[in-house]
Design a binder for these strands. Structure first.
Lengths: 197, 197
DNA sequence: GTGTAGAACTAACATTTGTTACCGTTAAAC
DNA sequence: GTTTAACGGTAACAAATGTTAGTTCTACAC
């Protein structure tokens, strides 16, 4: 009775993890109980454990899945032969699109990774540190080559990445502009600033 | 025995709320227990209730205190007779300084307000919506007066406010640049952009 | 010294939490 | 038709949670 509703092309486990991502975004990891999750999935709490091994595992899967996507992307971009400012723009556009298209996962992994436990916690901490460092290096290269103005690179990274997470407000807003227009606006503001030149 | 360590010029309640702010930032509201808080304060959990009425009340105090500061500030700035772009800069600088000087409170109230319960939840939701709307209006005024480039105002607000919350990373980083330099960098990037003109 | 108010303590409470053990049902494999 | 593995349910667990009741201590006013 009440089997997990299988969406086509997804295993039961994926259904659980996807639903968890939505709940973790809405309520936070700590404030979401396995019984909440079970209810949304349409099953008793204990039955979830036929598909996952713990609540913690769900968060781990979400965080590492998202982290891998961003790392693959920056691997690719770093290898390209283009101006640093274009690389930064490309990274920004990737972040924006990931937030547009995989909102729940990306948002949760960005906000809730602190609830991981070791060794996963240290692992993600490192990955995040290295990732930001790689972006900072591109910015510094851009400064040297006179493509980017002289600013503190870590500060620029911090602004970029956090600005993107503001897309959460866009998702929750009533009258949305289109995703494409949002992307162009964000790029325009971050690359060229607010002020009219 | 073990009376609450009173820092000068602060009541016991303030000590509790300040300590709670630190823990809520580090672990999140839901993941912080009253026993955790009591331990940090140096007291048994039950003793906290001589000074506060509930865990929820602590979060309420934090959120409304911070909200009031931002609203007072925008009241003042709106009343000034200066270019819209300068008003936006002033709002930004206020946000940056609040994040620098009252980090724990500001950060917590921005991240954890979702754990409020009605009527406080609806109240804060409204306040936040109205606040962002007021900033958007200033931006739109700036666009009309040709001080600010043509962009979607709500998107600009979203970037501004979220970028500022990135100061969290700065606080946690090892080798910090000074607060003043951070502020100038952030203003420079957001007002003028990353790209060299 | 005695009284009083504030503030700490101990003990306990009802819930909620993540999780396990165990059993029943179903649908496909043979 | 029988076997088997997948997957659902029920019941229960120990631990942790926010909070209350009642008691004891402490510091100051008189």
């Amino acid at each position: 009775m009440a089997k997990i509703r299988q969406r086509k092309n997804s295993t039961r486990k994926e259904t659980i993890v996807d639903t968890a991502a939505r709940l973790f975004r809405e309520r936070g990891f700590a404030a979401t109980s396995m019984r909440d999750l079970a209810e949304q999935v349409g099953v008793e709490a204990a039955s979830l454990y036929n598909h996952i091994s713990s609540k913690a595992e769900i968060l781990q899967e979400l965080c590492f899945k998202v982290a891998n996507q961003f790392i693959s992307n920056i691997d690719k971009i770093e290898a390209e032969d283009s101006p640093a400012i274009k690389k930064i723009e490309a990274i920004l556009r990737f972040h924006i699109r990931q937030m547009l298209n995989h909102y729940e996962e990306v948002y949760v992994s960005d906000r809730e990774w602190k609830h991981l436990t070791d060794p996963y916690l240290s692992n993600i901490r490192n990955q995040r540190r290295v990732y930001r460092q790689r972006i900072a290096s591109i910015i510094e290269e851009g400064i040297r080559k006179n493509e980017i103005k002289k600013i503190d690179a870590p500060t620029a990274v911090l602004i970029m990445l956090h600005a993107v997470s503001g897309i959460e407000s866009w998702h929750r807003s009533k009258q949305k502009i289109s995703g494409e227009i949002l992307e162009e606006n964000m790029i325009s503001i971050l690359i060229e600033g607010l002020q009219k030149k």
